[in-house]
């Protein structure tokens, strides 16, 4: 049966040699299309990464600027809260220094005298490190794909 089939195929090819050329062309075209798709995907991914990188830089710059501005404003607030400044403001408003004999102490049930509190902002915890390259990402995707494939085909 298979012998007959092979002979039929030889005969058919002998009669229509263009079929071989079409097959070769189709294979080349297929390869080209696959390459184009991979290239396009790579380009899209690279573009998206580059854009994200640029956006990240812009955001980082903005963050730096805002942090600097924040620092400046806090320093300005601190400068406006210096004791000489506040003393002068209080005098301007008509306040006078309280003498020891002018202070009245009262017992208030449940009142606890003020204790120093950690009122300063806690320094921000560093962001988690991000060091994944495009190659790493592609490898990860590929490994994930292989794992899924193994699951479907029952591989281990």
């Amino acid at each position: 049966m298979s012998q007959t089939r092979r002979e039929w195929l030889k005969h058919a090819l002998h009669q229509a040699p263009w079929r071989t050329q079409v097959q070769a062309t189709a294979l080349v075209a297929l390869g080209l299309v696959v390459s184009i798709i991979i290239g396009a995907l790579y380009l899209a991914q690279a573009t998206s990464t580059a854009t994200a990188g640029r956006d990240l830089k812009v955001l980082e710059r903005e963050l730096d600027r805002l942090e600097q501005e924040n620092n400046r404003l806090r320093a300005e607030v601190a400068s406006s809260q210096t004791v000489p400044y506040l003393t002068q403001r209080a005098r301007d408003l008509g306040f006078v220094q309280a003498g020891n004999d002018q202070v009245m102490y009262l017992v208030v049930n449940g009142y606890r005298p003020p204790e120093p509190e950690p009122v300063v902002p806690v320094a921000a915890e560093p962001l988690p490190e991000y060091d994944e390259t495009l190659n790493d990402w592609l490898s990860e995707q590929w490994n994930g794909f292989l794992e899924q494939l193994n699951l479907r085909t029952g591989g281990d």
Binding site: A46, G53, P126, D131
Partner: peptide, 13 residues
């Protein structure tokens, strides 16, 4: 620009 810029954040004082 094929990799997102990576800068390990320095630990503030």
């Amino acid at each position: 620009p094929f990799e997102a810029a990576y800068a390990p954040p320095p630990q503030p004082g």
